[in-house]
Nucleic acid binder design. Structure first.
Lengths: 251, 251
DNA sequence: TTTATTTATTTTGTATACAATTTTTTTATT
DNA sequence: AATAAAAAAATTGTATACAAAATAAATAAA
């Protein structure tokens, strides 16, 4: 299926409108696919295949994959290819700790700097989140649930920190797919609402405490004990793999 | 000076040793050059030129530039090229605020997790810093001064936060070149030493306070009022530029 | 039948070629 | 001489070509 359709590449000018950074479009597309969990962790991201899908050459795909890799959503193994990241339990804890630290600072700043319009936007975000939850629209829920945190970061008025939050939120999404115990918690919306109330009331202490509790609740819903089961079938059935045998022999 | 030496590209196998990720080598080289302020903010980074310098094609250079751009050390203007970033005063404040938040958390964690070996490493870093300062080795000082913060981040045991600190430290370096008022402060070493003492003593409160003061001292040495003077000569001499005249006419 | 070894195929890494865009230089006009 | 317009040169963006590596398949040996 490799070089069968060079026509697609030449017909790339589908929408002659905003041709600027077609690059960005592919990035957004792939970012969303991963964020909304339509692309499972571990999925191989073949350059050729993606190039055909988006009607561009590998050159462009490569740029996008490198960008995603720098955001830790994709992992590139040299000479092996790019894969959707499979965060380890340790990495999961790291990400949540980092979020705790950064979002605590953000919420603090949001208490000081928020306008009435900001509060309205936050409420709108949570309302949409609630709708998606009721409708069982998992993809929308994941996106909107993260959107709340992104909006907050924007309100805090620090683009650098906002970029970090965006990265951490998307990584959290990957973590949830891998380690969530039961089904989604419908309480997340309420927690978001409580945080908004604290911000609006100007209660910095409460806002920080609520944010901390919110992230802790998220972590509590994860089963971070379970180790990865990739190719560990042998160890599970207590049978030494041929390779392990060979290795032991060479010691 | 463009395509005069295609021989360099063919002679790329200078050191046949660790060929793995020659990419990384070029990245390190450029990162250091920017960090140690051998490459001034605003410098154009031509793909062709860099390709010849490092004996590789533009493909490889491009990858490196994109990586640096994602770390905000380099800025890419579409169709115009890549330039060493020139952080604005607003961006400078953002970076220092972000550092304050993140490094406060890091130092807190370092107080809890540090080993005796960690303290030794920190002391060694500061000692080297002091030497470079006495010898007037500016490049070494910049590198070592940042190294203290990187080491601290490593001790805190969160790779994600450590990566952010690395990014922020290098951006700070760019900020210092652009906005430092007088000459370097020799007190920075002492501040680092004080932080180490607080960590060793297990005094979380003191460590956090000292870190905050340290970053504040850094900010105080900057002149963030001064706006950029790029092409604003006309406004400085209160003379309308021809272009502005033309623009006004079209309104 | 299972394991090793070899061969073929696929996939990534890098260089090069060409198109699109920007910048510089040259030429023409006021 | 100064400005505007046009042409030339240089630079970036993207596609393709080829080399190196890894994976898959096929063949040979135990």
């Amino acid at each position: 299926m490799s070089r069968t359709a060079p026509t697609a590449a030449s017909t790339q000018r589908e929408t002659p409108s905003r041709k600027m950074s077609q690059n960005d479009h592919i990035y957004d597309e792939m970012f969303s696919a991963i964020l909304e969990q339509r692309l499972a962790p571990g999925t191989k991201l073949s350059e050729d295949t993606l190039g055909e899908i988006f009607g561009v050459s590998r050159t462009v795909i490569r740029t996008v994959l490198q960008r995603l890799a720098h955001e830790r959503i994709v992992q590139i193994h040299p000479n092996r290819g790019a894969f959707v990241s499979e965060p380890s339990p340790e990495e999961a804890k790291e990400v949540l700790r980092a979020r705790g630290l950064i979002e605590e600072g953000i919420v603090r700043e949001a208490v000081r700097r928020h306008s009435q319009a900001d509060i309205a936007e936050l409420r709108r975000s949570v309302a949409a989140e609630r709708v998606s939850l009721n409708e069982g629209d998992h993809e929308a829920w994941v996106r909107l649930s993260g959107n709340f945190h992104l909006t907050l970061a924007k309100i805090a008025g620090n683009q650098t920190l906002a970029a970090y939050v965006k990265e951490l939120v998307s990584r959290t999404s990957l973590i949830i797919v891998q380690y969530q115990k039961g089904n989604l918690s419908p309480c997340s919306c309420d927690e978001h609402t409580d945080i908004i109330k604290a911000i609006e009331a100007g209660d910095e202490g409460a806002a920080v405490t609520l944010m901390r509790a919110h992230l802790q609740a998220c972590e509590d819903q994860l089963n971070l004990q379970e180790r990865e089961v990739k190719g560990d079938l042998y160890s599970i059935f207590a049978k030494p793999s041929p390779k392990a045998e060979k290795l032991r022999g060479s010691l």
